[in-house]
Amino acid sequence: MHIRLEEVDFRYGTEGFRLNIPRWELASRRSAAFIGPSGSGKSTLLRLLAGILVPRDGTVEMNGQNLPVYSDASRRAFRIRNVGFVFQDFRLVEYLDVRENLLLPFRINRALELDENADVEAMAERLGIAEHLKKYPAELSQGEKQRVAIGRALLPGPGLVLADEPTGNLDPNNTRRIMDLLLEQTTDATLVMATHDHALARRLDEVMDFSEFQSS
């Protein structure tokens, strides 16, 4: 997924937080880290890239398509087919077991298709959670939860993976493992990650420092 931002101007309300990005581009299958303090707009930009938020002005182009001009339904369709999310707090659904959590994108989106058994088993093997498929999130460690969250994001085969502080709740050991896993598993996708951690950011192809763009 090739990303191109130009003269992006986003604001919460009329007086609230404002984000300005003159120009930024990321080639397909490359990775980028957004780094900056809390409240600097990293998560906001991830949401703009996913088409959840729409800027007041400017271009948010994905593979040549300018997302803001599309309707909410079209941007949702884009999200379903192209975007995988990994959250800091995992956001697993507590009442679904690991298998159903992995399958959640397919349960809520009829447009997605998969070979349920083969694909889920293969993904679980790749992430090292095959023995946990029948467990519920409450029965997993933090690291295991994040593996499931990564599996859920990757199973539909998205062209763009957006990870918002994916290691923010993990210890250093798990942080390294999850980061390795994320980079290994997203070689076919464009990866954009928001983080506070400069060391992690340096492992990605590009780093965008948000202090350059933010103004309030």
């Binding site: 959840i52 999200r79 379903i80 999310f85 707090d89 956001r91 809520i108």
Partner: peptide, 16 residues
């Protein structure tokens, strides 16, 4: 709210 917001972000329509 968090669960429902996650579903929305993953592409689930508000109507769904």
């Amino acid at each position: 709210r968090e669960e429902l917001e996650t579903l929305y972000q993953m592409g689930c329509a508000r109507l769904q």
